Amino acid sequence: MIQFDCHAHVYETVTAVKGARYVPAAPAPLADWLAHQAAHGLKGGVIVQVSFLGTDNSELCAALAGLDRQRFAGVGVVPLDVSEAALDALVAAGVRGLRWNLVRGVTLPDLAAPATRRFLDLLRARGLHLDIHLEGPRLAGWLPALTDQGVDVVIDHFGLPGEPDAGRDPLIGAVAGLADRSALFFKFSAGYRVPFDIRPHATELLSLIGLDRVVWGSDWPHTQHESRTSYASTREAAHHWGPLADQVAARHLYGIGPA
């Protein structure tokens, strides 16, 4: 059973950073997200820093400040050279992971570079996970090295697979080829961002990594797809992705739910 919405964006104002790829037309208030949760019998969830706000996590922290830490957590975005003090402040605010948004040709971080190694050291020391938003064809070749860094890796949106045939999908093949999948988790969210039926990919991923390494997310307010989906339809879609149960993964990754 799904108890948590582990991928949603909350912002009370729309003030984008310079160069933002997309700016929504309206805010996504915390009260609205909580109302959706209540309507669908959910117990809490995870607020993910939205891309148009860049590394300014103030909206995220403000939302978390009024929420129960046993039911809610956050995933922030910071620069590679983030200071330890700034990172500790995010952890104190309820952030349990940091996101790399690498879609649309963004250069992949060099995992061997000193700045990246320092960044990953900071995550390891604080028990934070790395949240990856990247298209499957690009992610596939990077996955073995990424999951060998000593931090948990959470892949957004099924990994945005690029091949309709799950049996031939490069990302599915990369997951299958991992000698050790213990650091790998997936978010089953935003199937509408993939231009084909995602159900075969969900089945393959569940068979490879197991129920305890999957969480569900609404991707609310469905940025760039606001007119073609809704919270209700995203919740309904999850019923077709397998017998999902998020209690173990949500507790491990975000510290939410029963101990």
Rank of each mutant, 00 (worst) to 15 (best):
V175G: 06
D121G: 10
L184H: 03
V194P: 10
A232D: 09
L211I: 07
A140E: 09
A237R: 13
R117Q: 14
L211N: 08
D180C: 14
F188E: 01
H240G: 13
G94L: 11
L87W: 07
L98M: 09
A86C: 05
V106A: 14
K18F: 09
P243E: 14
L139W: 14
Y22C: 13
L42M: 03
C6I: 12
D32L: 12
V175L: 10
P258M: 11
P170E: 00
P79R: 15
P144Y: 10
G217C: 03
A245L: 06
G162R: 12
H40F: 10
E204N: 04
R118K: 13
V77C: 09
R124L: 08
F119E: 02
L211Q: 04
A179I: 11
F4S: 15
A39E: 07
C6P: 14
H239E: 11
G141Q: 13
V175N: 03
F186H: 07
I132A: 09
F196K: 02
A176R: 15
L130H: 07
A25P: 01
R228D: 04
V106E: 07
R199G: 02
D131H: 03
R21M: 02
V215N: 08
I132W: 10
H225W: 11
R193A: 04
L120F: 08
L134G: 12
P144T: 06
F4H: 15
R118Y: 02
E12I: 10
D156W: 00
G45P: 11
V82G: 06
A25Q: 13
G191F: 11
R99M: 14
L87T: 06
L102T: 08
R96A: 01
F186Y: 08
P200R: 06
V17W: 03
V153S: 07
G44H: 09
Y192K: 04
L53F: 09
I198P: 02
P29I: 01
Q3I: 03
H239T: 13
L64W: 06
H36S: 04
H225L: 13
D246T: 11
H222D: 08
L111G: 14
I2L: 12
A8V: 06
L206K: 07
I256M: 15
W220R: 00
G173D: 01
D197K: 01
G210P: 07
R193V: 06
G217E: 06
D169S: 09
V10H: 04
Q247E: 14
Y22V: 13
S182T: 09
V48M: 08
V10D: 05
L171M: 04
G257Y: 14
D5E: 14
F158P: 09
L123K: 00
R96L: 01
A125Q: 07
V50Y: 00
G150E: 00
D148G: 02
Y231W: 06
A92R: 06
P258N: 13
G76Y: 04
V78H: 03
R138P: 00
S230T: 15
V154C: 00
P137R: 14
A112D: 15
L160Y: 00
R124S: 04
S233F: 13
S51R: 06
R118F: 05
V46K: 00
G217I: 05
L206H: 07
A183P: 02
G66P: 12
R235I: 07
A86F: 05
G159T: 02
R96W: 03
V214Q: 08
L80H: 11
L146T: 11
A202T: 14
A26M: 04
N57R: 01
